[in-house]
Design a binder for these strands. Structure first.
Lengths: 334, 334
DNA sequence: GCCCACGATTGGAGCGCTCCAACGAGCGTA
DNA sequence: TACGCTCGTTGGAGCGCTCCAATCGTGGGC
């Protein structure tokens, strides 16, 4: 019933050339006559031939694909990262394969097993790296968006979370806010942002008040943390959340308490994720420049695939404040 | 510098057995003695051996992976679908590979090329199928979440959008709403939901008013459509949106006009996506049961891989209304 | 004590490609 | 005319597995 897919030999036969010539055409060799190239391409089209990735990978030394490990499809920050990566890799003929860490946890013991079996040419880890992430020596790896370097020898590309937090705080203090709370969550990035928050507050002579959610950085966590903050410190005029999703929860908590945003309460997020720019949130946030992070990560990867020895260097991009409608001067200044 | 990864021969040598025995152990053959199995597993561990997927795929007839084509990572409806698929496939030793249609459009001419090159054992199309999606005869394919069967021979698993729309409308009319508007978008599902809306309205003796966004189904589309609706028909007391994202835009439009939800305006979405259950939206919506769709799709795929001839049958799951905080009786009934 | 059957183990062939060394044909040059 | 070159093209080897037929070893039945 299912005739096996055509092979390179089938193409060669119908084009009247050797299998080697077909291979040359497919890989874009310049030393093929126009006539033969056309004949081969026609045969490919006619037969609906698709080269077998498996055979190509086995025969060649390389798969021309980069594995990207993300945390969870629901955290949309990876979308822009992927776009940047794509852009940087496509010109080098490299493709991307994405794996979701939480989803795959059920099926694979070791989080990178799938990609290692696939013999990817490089790896982008867009997750909080764990100790279980042992990587074969010599495999180019870059950790993107996270700073804790648990992967030995990996390059690191991220935004400067501490600086981003300071940008957010400057914005709020410039507006005149003095009683500012921070909603923090789990993970390294959240910790750095919390540190940046505390530093800024102390530098401004203000008392830093940091409230955790329930361990993670979801909307629910943001809501829970904001409820706690607003109930225990009702004099608060501004909230800085560890990310946009938590900020969304804060908006909900504010609404429930009859606080209007931004008139009664200013809210700042982090990441500039797609929800931040919606009409409903119009969230002032810090752009962590994930597309650029992807581009730099691609660059690093390509360099290391090209043979340059990786040194485990870290690149920190400067985040940028994005002012939207969720921040304003406090009602009663002073 | 980079010593090539160990092969099955390396494992065989250090375990003191033949490569065939290693292969048997790896694939869980019952007819291997405990002693040898232990020796092989120890060697695998010691060498950090990972079987080459490429070689396995080439040698075996099958890759044991199912390709899933999704539209756009930002449309989160696929997350639950993936979970259901995973669940249904894992027990059969099948893994999942995900490709994003919009992202890959740049790198591949044909949307399925990557998966066909990979020689996936089956395909789940979780996108509006296009004519360009030619699939080799005999490859098990199921279209998930969409009803327009442009893929010949494919099974279809989706929710009954028309029924879902009717459920939403019943809910609103039961609450006493009479002046109800519908925000519609592009795509087959949106069309079916719009039809269900119109049917329900006509059946109830009401005038159906349907407003398109800007061609798609984003938050922006929902906002634009809602603005148009509320400005041209301010007597509207309830809005039914083609999906949750559009409903989010509607909430924004309502807020801008000083309409409180649900007191002044009820809003119903569709999909029960993760944003619907947030504290900020508390959106009444229709659960399209995407996890179950995934499970049924997995079942179909497994059956067809197992040899049963596909007939292009369609399975329609019954959607369920999820009532949250965005709907209530209209202010002035009648 | 011998033979057979069956479970455990093995080597060989081959999957569809890429890479490489080698080939033939035409050209310019001596 | 003979030679070396280059360009375009070719066949063969081999990548690391799976599958299969063949082999080995051992215990039970007679």
């Amino acid at each position: 019933m299912n005739s096996r897919p055509p092979t390179i030999y089938d193409v060669a036969r119908t084009a009247g050339v050797s299998k080697s010539l077909v291979s040359l055409v497919l890989r874009g060799s310049p030393s093929v006559s126009e006539a033969r190239r056309a004949a081969v391409l026609a045969a490919v089209e006619q037969l609906g031939y698709r080269p077998s990735q498996a055979a190509a990978a086995l025969a060649g030394a390389t798969t021309r694909t980069i594995g990207v490990v993300i945390d969870d499809y629901r955290n949309l920050w990876f979308v822009e990262l992927l776009r940047g990566l794509q852009e940087g890799l496509a010109s080098h003929g490299l493709r991307i394969a994405v794996a979701d860490h939480t989803l795959n946890a059920h099926v694979e013991a070791h989080p990178l097993d799938g990609f290692l079996s696939m013999r990817v040419d490089g790896l982008v880890i867009a997750t909080e790296p764990t100790g279980a992430m042992r990587v074969p020596e010599g495999l180019p790896v870059v950790v993107a968006g996270h700073r804790e370097g648990l992967v030995p020898g990996a390059d690191v590309v991220a935004n400067d979370d501490r600086l981003g937090a300071r940008l957010a705080m400057e914005h709020l203090t410039d507006l005149g806010h003095r009683r500012i709370g921070h909603l923090t969550g789990g993970g390294g990035a959240a910790r750095l942002r919390a540190e940046g928050f505390a530093e800024s507050m102390v530098a401004a002579g203000l008392e830093p008040r940091t409230v955790p959610g329930r361990g993670a950085t979801t909307e629910e966590d943001g809501y829970a943390a904001a409820v706690r903050l607003l109930d225990t410190a009702p004099e608060t005029t501004a909230v800085f959340a560890a990310n946009d999703t938590m900020a969304m929860g804060a908006l909900a908590a504010a609404g429930e308490r009859g606080l209007r945003v931004p008139q009664d309460l200013s809210v700042v997020g982090y990441d500039d994720s797609p929800i931040a720019s919606t009409h409903l949130l119009r969230l002032t946030t810090v752009d962590s420049r994930n597309a650029e992070i992807g581009e730099v990560a691609a660059e690093r990867l390509v360099a290391r695939i090209g043979g340059s020895r990786g040194t485990g260097a870290a690149v920190l991009l400067e985040p940028e404040l994005v002012v939207r409608g969720s921040t304003a001067a406090p009602r009663s200044t002073g």
